[in-house]
């Protein structure tokens, strides 16, 4: 695949407001695979968190963001699985229900927008694994990460529900593992692999959410993995950014390096670490000798 492909970069809420390392690595790594990322400047929240309040609003916001991208005549890339699921659901429901689509379009008209339903949606996982493809990635690996074993964390919405076109299998996802092996990382399945990080209830059930995250990190640590790779900003936020508070909550000491897969890929491609936001991982990633030159941030 050497044709330049243009995609609308739909970041959602959590990535552009706090998970800067994910965004930096995406902007750094993907163009090297001939992907041109176009920002969707008028975008808003995908609507997923508002499912709890009003499902119509979710549908409207998802359609609105897709319409913004359709207007540019390009497909959409949503690096957040929660956004990706909400958009996929809206796309499917609006295809099945023309009446609802018209109702939503009548609201979009107030902003001179129209949702047509011609858009394709991608997440980081299928974009890397299926669109760019393993061969193309392998060619760009310059410094494979050696002698480390990592656990995969997919994030619930990356794989479920299966009837809404998820990037990987709901019960036995393997694409992230394949992508890790491609850059030299060893990996293995583990019993807690599909466990939830608790991220969706963090505001109202803080302690339970941190317990979920802490227990998953603890399990991965006890299995002897050297670290964990994620592809979800909510998962990264719980397992990395909040690892210390999770440790306090469950009363265990946790020190597991957690990185976005795309950060690891960037490292393996020889990209300067400062461009991959590695100083922003709050878990002890500096423990990883496989990442050459990784420094303790002083």
């Amino acid at each position: 695949m050497n044709i330049m492909r243009e995609l609308g970069l739909y970041l959602g809420c959590v990535i552009p407001t706090e998970q800067y390392a994910y965004e930096m690595s995406i902007r750094e790594v993907l163009p090297r695979f001939d992907i041109e990322l176009t920002d969707l400047y008028g975008a808003t929240c995908c609507g997923a968190p508002l499912r709890n309040i009003n499902l119509f609003t979710t549908m409207y916001l998802s359609a609105r963001n897709m319409a913004l991208c359709e207007e540019k005549g390009i497909d959409l890339y949503a690096p957040c699985p929660i956004c990706h699921l909400a958009l996929t659901e809206a796309k499917k429901k609006l295809k099945e229900n023309q009446e609802l689509k018209e109702k939503i379009n009548s609201k979009l008209k107030e902003e001179d927008l129209r949702y047509k339903g011609i858009i394709e949606l991608y997440h980081t996982l299928d974009l890397l694994h299926d669109v760019i493809g393993l061969d193309e990635i392998e060619e760009k690996v310059e410094e494979p990460l050696e002698d480390i074993t990592f656990a995969a964390h997919y994030g619930c919405n990356t794989i479920r529900p299966n009837n809404l076109d998820r990037p990987d299998d709901s019960e036995n996802p393997q694409k992230l593992e394949e992508l890790m092996e491609l850059i030299g990382i060893e990996t293995e399945d583990y019993p807690e692999k599909l466990d939830c990080c608790g991220g969706q209830v963090i505001s109202d059930h803080n302690e339970s959410a941190l317990t979920k995250a802490g227990e998953k990190v603890e399990a991965v640590q006890n299995h002897g993995f050297d670290g964990m790779a994620t592809i979800c900003p909510w998962g990264q936020r719980m397992l990395d950014s909040k690892q210390d508070s999770s440790a306090d909550t469950i009363g265990e000491s946790l020190s597991l390096p957690v990185l976005y897969y795309i950060q690891l890929l960037g490292v393996a491609m020889g990209i300067d670490q400062s461009k991959l936001g590695l100083e922003l991982n709050l878990s002890p990633v500096d423990k990883l000798e496989a990442i050459e030159g990784i420094e303790e941030v002083e």
Binding site: C13, T17, Y20, Y41, G42, C45, E279, N281, V297
Partner: peptide, 29 residues
């Protein structure tokens, strides 16, 4: 969006802003 742009910490506990990383403005209607 569900939250405003946040200041975050790096591993050395220094405050970092979105602007520190040369990222384009956050999308907004």
């Amino acid at each position: 969006l569900i939250q405003q742009t946040k200041e975050v910490l790096n591993r050395a506990n220094d405050t970092r802003k979105r602007d520190d990383y040369d990222l384009p403005p956050v999308p907004k209607p």
